[in-house]
């Protein structure tokens, strides 16, 4: 019973937090560029407007895929709040991400196709990292259960510092931020238009946006497990990480997928393995 209530709270709170975070993100970005920026509530206005637009699709697959993506990401957040198994959450989230790509592949537009291919490569890049992070958590706490990991008496970051950095790679990719923003560019008037989201429009694009908020909260939730013992330090860790993401986004340009795959896999996997060996030995 308690788990159901927690899951429902997660379902309601996560998009609100995610939307607010998107608004704050744009504000801070504007501040870094010495602009004023949009209102904090901007993300909600955007999505409400999208829902008010005429539904226009290239084919029915897009409707199905947009809804599945939303459902899967909402479900993964609900499972996280209900303190379910990390591996289950991981697979539900991955299924959603793949449906999003399928919707983009269903349209023949070259931008959408290129964006979808790149999104697949991004998924290929961050999923192994996430699995390794979860494996590290298992080695440190002896469980894949979110509740048990949260109840662990010491902060995990002391044991898994390198894996936290590995997780921030996944976070940057998931947030679609530079230098890894090549499946959908933030500024649409570039070579890629809007990449994987180009062909989603109106209410269906709104669904994709809301699903994206859910995913953001999920990854931040995973990050919060690294310092679950103290609310203050946990908040500081999250705020610091997100601020670093925005800074990185503003300070770097978009790279190529080859670079990402080489860089993230070599450095990321190396750090993960070193951390795991250290954990095993110590």
């Amino acid at each position: 019973m308690e788990a159901v209530i927690l899951a429902l709270i997660g379902l309601v709170v996560a998009p609100l937090l995610g939307g607010l975070l998107a608004g704050i993100d744009r504000r801070v970005t504007a501040w870094m560029q010495s602009r004023q920026g949009p209102p904090i509530m901007q993300a909600f206005y955007d999505v409400a407007k999208l829902f008010g637009k005429e539904p226009m699709v290239v084919n029915r697959w897009q409707i199905f895929c947009a809804w599945t993506y939303l459902l899967a990401s909402a479900l993964s957040v609900a499972l996280f709040f209900a303190q379910a198994d990390l591996l289950l959450i991981f697979f539900v989230q991955a299924a959603g991400a793949v449906f999003m790509v399928m919707g983009a592949l269903a349209a023949k537009s070259p931008y959408s196709q290129v964006g979808a291919q790149r999104e697949l490569i991004q998924i290929l890049t961050y999923e192994p990292l996430l699995i390794l992070v979860f494996a590290g958590m298992f080695m440190a706490t002896g469980s894949f259960n979110v509740g048990t990991i949260f109840a662990h008496p010491e902060p995990l970051i002391a044991k898994l510092p390198l894996l936290f950095i590995v997780l921030t790679y996944a976070l940057t990719i998931k947030l679609r931020k530079s230098p890894f923003d090549f499946s959908t560019s933030h500024h649409g008037h570039q070579e890629l238009v809007k990449g994987v989201t180009t062909e989603y429009s109106g209410p269906f694009f709104g669904l994709v946006e809301v699903a994206h908020w859910y995913e953001t909260i999920l990854v931040l939730g995973v990050a919060s497990m690294f310092w679950a013992t103290n609310v203050f330090w946990c908040a500081l860790l999250l705020v610091g990480t997100y601020f670093a993401e925005i800074l990185l986004d503003n300070a770097t340009a978009r790279m190529t997928w080859r670079w990402m795959l080489k860089y993230v896999w070599s450095i990321g996997l190396l750090m993960a393995v070193v951390n795991l060996i250290w954990l095993h030995a110590g």
Partner: peptide, 21 residues
């Protein structure tokens, strides 16, 4: 540009007719 900053009004140059109003 920062001088006029239309993003204040929520205006975004999306470059994609399917997203545009």
């Amino acid at each position: 540009t920062p001088l006029y900053d239309v993003e204040r009004f929520g205006i975004v140059n999306v470059g994609n007719p399917k997203h545009a109003d």
